[in-house]
């Protein structure tokens, strides 16, 4: 098996690694780069514990080949806090007790951040569908959804404050894959 040399960018840092083509991005992050914050719960894209952003797009790192990330930008849980300052979602997860065992937490945080960057005013249904690819077996999701909604509320408050001073930041495309799916059976 011929190894591949890859130059990429992770959490803003240029990174180089060598991997076998059968290694996933998750394998590379965990085993080659020591970034074990992304977790493997299934290895088949069904649990979301390995969620990362690839060029701003939420993906399962277990379903990305390590070999294919050359020249791309990757964001992982390790890049979420800025120094000793937690991301608002991280803070809200703590305050709402939105984690029990914590194994799914990095994936939920990465996925929720990706949602709120696109839509800082999601409905509960939108949050639930956006996060449907992240399994949590401990919490029953209640406190996770509350933490995300509460973070969004704070983000809107601070956006309103800052928009009083400068023009409002343009909202990215809102996630649309929500209400229509919820209405599927009732169709």
């Amino acid at each position: 098996m011929s190894a591949v040399h890859v130059s990429t960018n992770i959490n803003g840092d240029d990174v180089e690694f060598v991997c076998r083509p059968d290694e996933s991005l998750l394998d590379v992050l965990r085993d080659r780069l020591g970034m074990t914050g992304s977790k493997e719960g299934c290895g088949t894209g069904d649990c979301g514990a390995c969620s990362v952003e690839l060029d701003g797009r939420l993906v399962c790192s277990c379903l990305v080949m390590g070999a294919e990330v050359g020249g791309h930008k990757i964001e992982t849980i390790e890049g979420m806090a800025q120094g000793d300052k937690l991301h608002p979602l991280q803070q809200k997860f703590l305050e709402h007790a939105a984690l029990q065992c914590g194994i799914c937490t990095p994936g939920f945080l990465v996925a929720a951040r990706n949602l709120l960057e696109r839509n800082n005013d999601p409905t509960e249904t939108e949050v639930r569908y956006w996060l449907a690819g992240n399994l949590c077996r401990c919490t029953g999701y209640d406190k996770i959804v509350r933490a995300v909604l509460d973070t969004a509320k704070d983000m809107r408050k601070s956006a309103a404050k800052s928009s009083a001073k400068k023009p409002a930041a343009k909202k990215k495309a809102a996630p649309k894959k929500t209400a229509k799916k919820g209405a599927r059976h009732a169709a």
Partner: peptide
């Protein structure tokens, strides 16, 4: 009362070490 859990920060930053995280 409902304080933040002591192992919380490690778990929201990805620093907490689970079974497969040892090497």
């Amino acid at each position: 009362t409902r304080p933040n859990r002591p192992d919380g920060v490690d778990k929201v930053t990805g620093r907490a070490r689970f079974g497969a995280d040892f090497a």
